[in-house]
Write a protein that binds this DNA or RNA. Structure first.
Lengths: 248, 248
DNA sequence: CGACGTGTTGATTCCTGTCAATACTCGTGG
DNA sequence: CCACGAGTATTGACAGGAATCAACACGTCG
């Protein structure tokens, strides 16, 4: 496991950062990177560890460098909904807000590149390359959130599962896009995390995964590894139109 | 009705615009406003009229000046989900995207202040006052979308209705915040539009409204007008914690 | 008046949640 | 080495809430 954790010492230098060209700093010039380096520090969280509690004062904003984290909300009686899945290069926190609105929890071991909030907000004002990149990212997030609203509001349990798997598969195979060939993917989520994400119970998640397996749409190798014999079969189960619905 | 429609001629001048201090132009200096005036034009849409179809080329982005519009998504078999409710000062369209991703439909008579897309994108790059304001608005929208995800994924039909009414009531009474006194509100939505927003059928919406009425949580004056004898009663039905859940 | 859009209410079905029992996986420690 | 336990996952029985199908009421406009 530790092999996947970045060497924090080496990463003081932004130029060798794995998310350099995708994160909020993507558009920065060398002198702007230097300013960022002055206000940044790294933190690593263990799986299951809470990064931020809703209601906490936000001392920093951050980029996810590696790992997976969840943005969740909870109703007073305990019902929980994941409202965002944070992957490497995603941004955490909301500039201009004092107090966190959502819980942030590490799902896998997760390393953040944190920026002290106040200086970062100052940079936002003075550095269009940062604010413009953040704007792009926020608009992308907004589109993703809206896609997810369709899933939560209108899709059946089976369609939700098929959508989730196809999204993960799609992201895992961005490069090797051989459409009709078998693809195999690791689910970075437990059944419970999936249920939080999809607005279902974990029992229903489990049942629908079993059903998709029984119907030959997917195969299972262990609990977290999925084999997709024919992506088109899976996409046909998502309820989206044939272009795959542009989900993420 | 026409009394509510702004006089388009008078509004060539941004300084007298009703949304001047809330829309994407809120932070602009006089010279920047002038640049905006050069690329803007007004359009008015009748209730029910489609403003943009998903898949259309986006020729413009816009601010809602008056009225109400809906951002919706549709599954191939016709299931529909509203993913945004656009009120005066809200922004329509996504800079940097060629093709619209969602349908935009006028619910009431709606006037837009449209900006030709290409020149607007150029301004975004050159005018931090615009891009920073748009960033703020996008982050607010993102928070609202995430609140809505909790509602769609985890709330019961009754809680959804109570949440919707309390949000509308809250927005309608921003100034006169006498908490325990009766409030009355107009719902700007049909039952069908509510069902699209809440991820329910219109029958369920109707039934739950009747149930809340029977339980004395709300009163009805005609179909579109709601009286709330005690806001705390209504808030207790939303499922949120007692602070009202910060929904919008 | 009749037609249409809108809204209400009823009967029934079925999908998903709930409660509960049972496997499986992976460490730890005897 | 195996037993034990905690965390995770599967499966079953059952109940309940919302969807579906259908009939009917209300208001407006021609």
């Amino acid at each position: 496991m530790t092999a996947l954790v970045p060497d924090l010492e080496k990463m003081r230098d932004c130029t060798s950062c794995p998310i350099r060209h995708k994160a909020v700093c993507a558009k920065c010039e060398p002198d702007e990177l230097q300013r960022l380096e002055e206000i940044k520090y790294y933190r690593t969280f263990a799986p299951g560890q809470t990064i931020i509690w809703a209601g906490d004062r936000m001392e920093f904003v951050a980029s996810v460098v590696s790992g997976v984290a969840a943005l969740t909300q909870t109703l007073e009686d305990g019902r929980r909904q994941m409202v965002g899945l944070l992957l490497p290069s995603d941004f955490v926190g909301r500039p201009g807000r004092e107090v966190a609105k959502f819980d942030v929890t590490a799902i896998a071991e997760t390393t953040l590149c944190c920026f002290r909030r106040k200086p970062f907000e100052k940079m936002l004002e003075e550095t269009p390359n940062v604010s413009q990149r953040l704007l792009e990212m926020a608009l992308d997030e907004l589109d993703a959130a809206r896609e997810w609203m369709l899933l939560l509001g209108r899709k059946t349990a089976r369609e939700k599962i098929a959508s989730l798997i196809s999204i993960i598969a799609r992201r895992a195979t961005i490069n090797e896009r051989v459409y009709s060939e078998a693809v195999s993917v690791d689910l970075p989520l437990t059944r419970e995390a999936m249920s939080d994400y999809l607005g279902l119970t974990l029992e229903t998640v489990s049942r629908q995964i079993s059903a998709l397996k029984k119907d030959g749409v997917i195969g299972l190798k262990g609990n977290r590894h999925v084999v997709i014999p024919d992506m088109r079969l899976l996409l046909a189960e998502t309820g989206d139109d044939d272009d795959g619905g542009a989900l993420l």
